[in-house]
Amino acid sequence: MTEATGVVAIGWPQLALASGFIIAVGAITLVLHLGVAKDLAIATLRTYAQLLALGFVLRWVFRTNTPLLVVAILCVMLLAATRIVLRRSPDAPPGLFGSTLLSMAITGITITFVVTGLVVGVDPWWRAQYVIPIGGMIIGNSMSGIALALERVFADLDSRSDEVLALTALGATPWEAARASVRTALRAGLIPGINTLAAVGIVFIPGMMAGQVLAGVDPLVAAPYQIVVMMMVAAADVLGSVCAVLLSYGRRFTSDGVYLEKGHRA
């Protein structure tokens, strides 16, 4: 089945054939008593339901194409991403929702619109068909870096609590006492992004480029798109991590600049 765009569309029989592999895997897990057959079945059904629902929603959104709807969808993405980031950072103090959301919003929205408006030059610059996939990639990919940086800054502060106390006792400000941990955390948050930039195209073909190539786009047209997205994801990672860590490390200190050790926290 080939459509006018050169895309080979996948119909229900092909989907059923692909699902046959999962049924085979399920059978193996049953034979080996791995105890995950039910989870596998539910996860497979969720994949069907979630991606088909996404397809319907995106089709409607692209056809409606109003700026308000685009903003609403970006807000939902940011709220969900913030919740996931904080869930992945168990050492972070409570009350970081606002600062993390703000960090992700500033970096995610700015970079998304720079890409669609200036780099790709979409007209209008808020066109849903571009903003939503690119925004989703930028927000989704920067989540890991931000979560890692947040988790690391508070874990590192705890592991350096003796040093932090000694520095505070010498008259250090919270920033002076926490600086080494902030640096460690930001470095940790950036390493996955740098590794991805270095490995892309050799170790793996990134999802966006693979998708475009499968959709019939010339690889030399798809590659610059992917480069733009990789750069923007890395930038969002850095800026998001920097904002999130700088806006949050101070919550471990009292107004008098004293580090709150475990057991002294509200």
Binding site: D162, L167, A169, G171, A172, V258
Partner: peptide, 19 residues
């Protein structure tokens, strides 16, 4: 200011913490 106070009333923790 608490930081100025700490320069005049200096606490030395039990575990020597050198950077």
């Amino acid at each position: 200011d608490p930081r100025v106070w700490r320069t005049r009333v200096a606490y030395l923790p039990q575990r020597a913490s050198l950077v």
